[in-house]
Amino acid sequence: MRIAIAGSTGTVGKLVHSIATERGHDVVALARSNGHDLEHASLPPSVLDRVDTIVDVSGIQTLSRHRSRRFFESVSANLQQAGTAAGVGHLVALSIVGIDGVDAAYYGGKLAHERAVQRGALPHTLLRAAQFHEFAEQTLVRGKMGPITVVPAARVRPIAAREVAEHLVTLAEGEPVGRARDLTGPRDELLIDMVRALLDARGIRRTTIEMRLPGSFGRAMSSGRLRGHANAERGTVTFAEWLAAQS
């Protein structure tokens, strides 16, 4: 089948591209580097010619609710418009577990993304997944403040991005199901422990400080609600196993 990937150069997008190709699918990569500005410009329906399924793993690095909402609503509108015109039969979109009622910061944008997918004309499948193991690396970079790293207080149930990508491709190969069963990692972790383990694995001595972020965004992270529900599907690769495989 022919699969288009929105956000094909991102953490998950690159893996979706690789896995879909390995499974013998014809892949259309939608990314700025390929001339597709899905936020600011309409996508010509010809780009989606003969596409069966769009996998939307687009993303933006921001903590601004307004900025993230604008991004996801614009991208979703462009994909819906071009996909409908091209006769695409299925849209698979990725979101985050546990964000119900957290209409703040980046999570507010993801809730807007979900609403846009659900009210759109394209038959859809919406997958909520837990934070990736790769989130530790992102936190290490974003939280760097001189000689220390500030890590948000967060209780998570992280999953390897590759396992999420494999699940997305499997969903893309099937029929639209609406809300798919949530996907989380195999065990609970504290983000501060993940960051410290990452530093130890790299032989880096660096002070890390855990800080609870303010507002509903911070409460969601520290409360453990972002671990997802007990009835979610579970990945198999633990953070420790993933980290060992990186060396």
Score class of each variant (00 low, 15 high):
A20G: 15
P214E: 00
V150Y: 04
T84D: 14
G101E: 08
E210G: 12
I148D: 10
D103F: 09
V195P: 05
G98I: 15
T236I: 13
H167F: 01
R2K: 15
L79Y: 14
H113D: 13
V237Q: 10
A161E: 11
H40G: 13
T125N: 10
T184F: 03
G101Y: 12
I19M: 08
A86I: 08
A29Y: 04
A153S: 14
S46G: 04
F132G: 09
G89P: 02
V150H: 04
D200V: 10
R219K: 14
L126N: 07
G143W: 09
S58Q: 00
Q81G: 01
L43T: 10
R179I: 11
G10P: 03
D37C: 05
R225Y: 06
V47Y: 03
Y106N: 03
A244I: 09
N78L: 01
M221K: 07
H229W: 07
R227I: 02
L199P: 06
L191I: 14
E175L: 06
V57K: 03
S222A: 15
S216Y: 00
Q246C: 06
E134W: 09
S8A: 15
E163D: 02
S216N: 08
G108Y: 02
R196A: 13
T184N: 05
D52H: 13
G24T: 13
S64A: 14
L111K: 09
G235M: 04
A201P: 05
L43R: 13
R162F: 06
S42V: 09
G108L: 05
V92W: 01
A41I: 01
A129W: 00
L91V: 06
E73K: 08
R115E: 10
V88W: 01
N231Y: 02
R70N: 06
T21P: 00
F239E: 07
V16P: 11
N34F: 15
R119L: 12
A232T: 00
L183Y: 12
P123Y: 05
R206E: 12
F71W: 06
V150C: 07
V88Q: 04
M211H: 06
D188F: 04
R155W: 07
